[in-house]
Nucleic acid binder design. Structure first.
Length: 189
DNA sequence: GAAGCCATTCACA
DNA sequence: TGTGAATGGCTTC
């Protein structure tokens, strides 16, 4: 378990990344978690609180895969039309969200969301139709637990009558503003 | 295990 | 508009 973070100058937020099983090689790198922080102090205290091993960014830059990962995320955040999910899978980085989502219901939800293209949006009800279920709230609570936002583009899932929630928040907090910023970035009005 | 909570939606008054 | 029922997984005791 190794963690690092960097600042996105475009969105003015800190992006925290947690990798598992990576020994500096391509083999067995698992992208475990992506989190957003608005202040650097918050990232640092999160890392300290959870006793995480922070990897020196310079060290990571020497390791092809990880720097490719950073570059991809930065390119995406600077407005380049790339689909992070596909690109990261091409890097042989394991996104195995199926391990985190045990039930077939939640796996289906995550699969549908992961296939959304750049700039493409859907709604909770539309996902429900695809998996033949009316449990819209259950879909929301699964997306809420998405460990790798941006890569699994849960910000592209909107409510029928509004933007819906993001990162556990439902009203006009900074999380929702971030969701709006990501949608704007992708050209979704 | 059971109860209660959720990033929802729809029907109906 | 507003209320209330349906929905299925997850968290918390």
């Amino acid at each position: 378990m190794r963690v690092t973070y960097f600042k996105s100058s475009f969105l003015d937020i800190f992006i925290f990344i947690c990798l598992k099983n990576g020994n500096g090689t391509l083999e067995g790198v698992v992208l475990d978690e992506i989190k957003f922080f608005w202040k650097e102090d918050d990232v640092i205290s999160y890392i300290e609180k959870n006793n995480l091993e922070q990897v020196d960014e310079k060290l990571l830059e020497d390791q092809g895969v990880v720097s490719d990962l950073f570059n991809l995320i930065n390119e995406y955040l600077s407005g380049k039309r790339i689909n992070l999910y596909d690109k990261i899978k091409n890097l042989n980085i394991d996104l195995s969200f199926s391990k985190k989502f045990g039930t077939s219901f939640s796996q289906k939800v995550m699969e549908i969301v992961s296939k959304l293209n750049y700039g493409e949006t859907t709604t909770y009800s539309s996902i429900g139709q695809k998996i033949n279920s009316k449990a819209y709230r259950a879909i929301g609570s699964i997306l809420r637990k998405n460990p790798i936002p941006l890569v699994i583009p849960c910000h592209r899932v909107l409510g029928r009558n509004g933007i819906g929630g993001f990162m556990g928040e439902t009203d006009g907090g900074k999380e929702i503003n971030l969701k709006k910023a990501l949608l704007k970035l992708e050209g979704v009005v």
